[in-house]
Amino acid sequence: MVSYLRLHFTVNGTPQALRIPANTLLLDLLRDRIGLKGAKVGCSRGVCGACTVLVDGQPVAGCSTFAFQAQGAMVETIEGLARDGALHPVQQAFIDHAALQCGYCTAGMILLAKALLAHDPDPDRATIVEWLSSNVCRCTGYQLIVEAVEDAARRMRQAAQDDPGAEA
């Protein structure tokens, strides 16, 4: 039995070891302890998904996930997507398709799309809609987001074809 625990995990590739109260939520840990504010505080009920981050590649609502659940895991946040100044193809597609408005759901939507494309590099529109239905966007009506994800999938498949050795 512990009220505090030592948490070892990686965030965007950087190993972290932190002593945290057992009741710390992943979202609080990321935003207030680690300073990564890209995951947003929305409904606080695991419904809207503005707080989505990836834990071992799986999209989870940071507001409804305890930090202790990420013990030993690889956590990815929106801040970790761009590499060496180059945007991730999903990020670039969101820009090119104006698939964002207020931006509050954007990090979660991009991470959902990244997880989807890792799971299925060539999803049909229905699959994209099914995955994106995990999170709420109140601004866009979703159409431009779906189109951005379709385009990102195309670009990533093309890039994989051009350079089979490159990291997806």
């Binding site: 039995m1 009220s3 057992a22 009741n23 939520l25 979202l27 609080d28 606080s44 409804s64 202790f68």
Partner: peptide
């Protein structure tokens, strides 16, 4: 209340 006002608890495994 919200997740920012979670009371402390003991964790058992």
């Amino acid at each position: 209340t919200s997740f920012r006002s979670l009371p402390p608890f003991e964790l058992h495994r």
